[in-house]
Design a protein around this nucleic acid. Structure first.
Length: 263
DNA sequence: GTTGAGCGTT
């Protein structure tokens, strides 16, 4: 009886699925069973896991036999610490039996007096606020999605995972990516041709100029080669450095003649 | 070994 969902969905005739989020990656159905079973009759517990890794995704589905018990478990286990982590319990909406929720409206089937009795305002707010802080900003694994994307060659097989990325897309555009480029572009606003290169943004590659090296100051000591060896033509690779004026050519040469050139 | 938004299998 410890294996849930191993044989597929047992019976979704009259079972109500609850979505448990924010659970640890080590939490298994066996750990959630005693917790949810205490508040009602749990028919089955299913925890989606990765096909390749086999690890839990961080959320589980608990199926109750009765809606009233499920509802109670939601309010009871919602915000409960499991395995040292606070879990989030709520009714599944995109599940196979989600239609029953809309038809029967089990969410509103219960008297409101129950809601009034329970004071879950502060707790719910804290959880929401905690997540609203900056979690979704850098969610997901370090390079899990990227790795997965590379493996699938940028083809999304699931789709639901991508939806999350879509939500975080605008956040980056407004918060980080766009703002940073905007500053650079604003700085170069004084120049005339600042719009062209700015539009490409990430395109670091620009027209190779024979007069100017792509990175004269970053080339030396590249592979352990001596700077002298670099100039096989006999001339110094950096004529500005040998300038009699004694200027070490800091970052860039604020020469008015180079103004017409990009950057 | 890690991580942290969300919605599921035979």
């Amino acid at each position: 009886m410890s294996h849930f969902g191993r044989s597929g969905p047992p019976d979704i005739t009259d079972t109500y699925s609850l979505l448990v989020l924010n659970i640890t990656f080590r939490t298994t159905a066996d750990d959630l069973f005693p917790l949810f079973d205490k508040y009602g009759k749990v028919v089955d517990i299913f925890i989606p896991r990765d096909r390749r890794s086999g690890d839990s995704r961080g959320f589980a589905f608990v199926r109750y036999k009765y809606a009233e018990e499920a509802q109670k478990a939601v309010e009871r286990l919602d915000g409960r610490a499991v395995d040292g982590r606070e879990i989030t319990v709520q009714f599944a909406k995109y599940g196979p039996n989600a239609e029953k929720i809309r038809k029967g409206r089990i969410v509103e089937s219960f008297p409101k007096s129950k809601y009034s009795s329970r004071s879950r305002s502060p707790r719910k707010r804290e959880r929401d606020d905690h997540r609203d802080r900056d979690y979704r900003r850098r969610s997901r694994s370090r390079s899990y999605d990227r790795h997965d994307r590379d493996r699938h060659h940028g083809r999304d097989k699931d789709g639901r995972r991508r939806s999350r990325s879509r939500s975080a897309s605008p956040d980056y555009s407004r918060g980080r990516g766009r703002g940073r480029y905007d500053e650079e572009r604003r700085s170069a606003s004084q120049s005339r041709d600042s719009a062209s290169p700015a539009r490409h943004g990430r395109s670091r590659r620009r027209s190779p100029s024979p007069r100017r090296s792509p990175s004269p100051r970053r080339t030396p000591l590249s592979r352990g080669e001596s700077p002298e060896k670099h100039g096989l033509n006999g001339h110094s690779p950096n004529p500005r450095s040998s300038s009699p004026r004694g200027q070490p050519a800091a970052s860039r040469s604020p020469s008015p003649r180079n103004s017409d050139v990009d950057e």
